[in-house]
Lab assay of single mutants.
Amino acid sequence: TFTSYQLEELEKVFQKTHYPDVYAREQLAMRTDLTEARVQVWFQNRRA
């Protein structure tokens, strides 16, 4: 599960791009204290 802060950050990036590159995902992962893999999976699920 994600915190409301994490979801907010993820959604913010999703609004800009549905396909963030690895750099964007790593920045987001650091900001949200998630792994890059978790961020990647979240985007895959969000796009589905």
Rank of each mutant, 00 (worst) to 15 (best):
E8P: 15
F14K: 00
R25Q: 07
R25E: 03
Q44P: 02
Y19K: 03
Y23V: 14
A48I: 11
T17W: 07
Q6H: 02
A29W: 04
F2G: 02
H18I: 09
Y19E: 04
A48L: 13
F2Q: 02
R38A: 15
E8W: 08
D33I: 05
V13G: 04
D33F: 09
V22M: 13
K12G: 05
A37N: 08
D21M: 02
V41W: 15
Y23S: 11
M30E: 10
D33T: 06
T17Q: 07
Q27W: 10
S4V: 12
R47N: 06
F43Q: 00
T32Y: 04
E9Q: 09
A37P: 07
R47I: 07
Q44F: 07
T35W: 03
L34D: 01
Q6Y: 01
R25F: 08
M30Q: 11
L28T: 02
D21R: 04
Q27G: 05
A37F: 09
T3Y: 05
T35N: 06
Y5C: 10
V13T: 07
A29D: 15
Y23G: 07
E26N: 11
D21K: 04
D21W: 02
K16Y: 10
D33Y: 07
E11Q: 04
A29Q: 05
M30D: 07
A37T: 09
M30V: 10
L28F: 09
Y19A: 04
T17K: 03
R25I: 15
E26F: 10
L34C: 05
E8Q: 11
D33R: 09
V13S: 07
A24E: 15
N45F: 09
D21F: 15
S4H: 13
R31L: 12
V13R: 02
Q27T: 07
R47V: 08
L34W: 14
E26Y: 13
V22C: 12
Y5G: 06
R31I: 12
T3H: 06
L7N: 11
R46P: 01
F43P: 02
L10V: 03
A48P: 03
N45G: 07
S4R: 12
F14T: 00
R38I: 15
L34K: 00
T35H: 04
A37V: 08
F2W: 08
D21G: 08
K16S: 09
V22N: 09
L28W: 00
E36N: 05
Y19L: 03
Q15W: 06
Q6K: 01
N45I: 10
E36P: 13
K16T: 12
Q15R: 10
Q27F: 13
L10N: 00
A48V: 09
R38Y: 09
Y19N: 06
Y23M: 10
Q44R: 08
Q27E: 14
T35P: 07
V41A: 14
A24I: 12
E9H: 05
R47W: 04
E36T: 08
R46F: 01
A48K: 11
L10G: 00
F14S: 00
T1Q: 13
W42C: 03
T35E: 06
K12M: 08
S4G: 08
Q44E: 15
E36I: 11
H18K: 10
W42M: 13
Q44K: 12
R47C: 07
W42S: 15
Y23C: 13
V22T: 11
R38G: 08
E36V: 13
V41C: 14
E26Q: 14
W42G: 00
T32C: 13
A24T: 14
K12L: 08
T3R: 04
N45V: 10
L34G: 01
R38P: 01
Y19T: 05
P20Y: 03
T35Q: 04
R38C: 14
D21I: 03
M30R: 15
Q44I: 09
V39A: 01
F43C: 03
L28R: 13
E36G: 05
A37S: 09
E9D: 02
T32Q: 02
M30Y: 12
T35D: 10
V41M: 14
E26C: 14
Q15E: 10
E9W: 06
Y23T: 11
M30H: 11
Y19H: 08
V13N: 02
E9P: 00
A29N: 15
A24P: 15
F14R: 01
Q40P: 01
T35G: 04
V39Y: 01
W42A: 00
T32E: 01
W42P: 00
Q15V: 07
E26W: 12
Q40N: 14
H18A: 12
E11S: 03
N45Q: 14
T35R: 03
Q27C: 09
V39T: 02
T1R: 11
V39E: 00
R47Y: 03
T1S: 13
V13Q: 08
V41E: 15
R38S: 13
D33L: 10
L28D: 01
R25S: 04
V41L: 14
A37G: 09
K16V: 13
A48Q: 11
R47P: 02
T32H: 04
L28N: 00
F2Y: 12
L28Q: 00
T3M: 05
Y5I: 07
Y5T: 07
A29C: 11
T35I: 04
E36H: 07
Q6L: 02
Q40W: 10
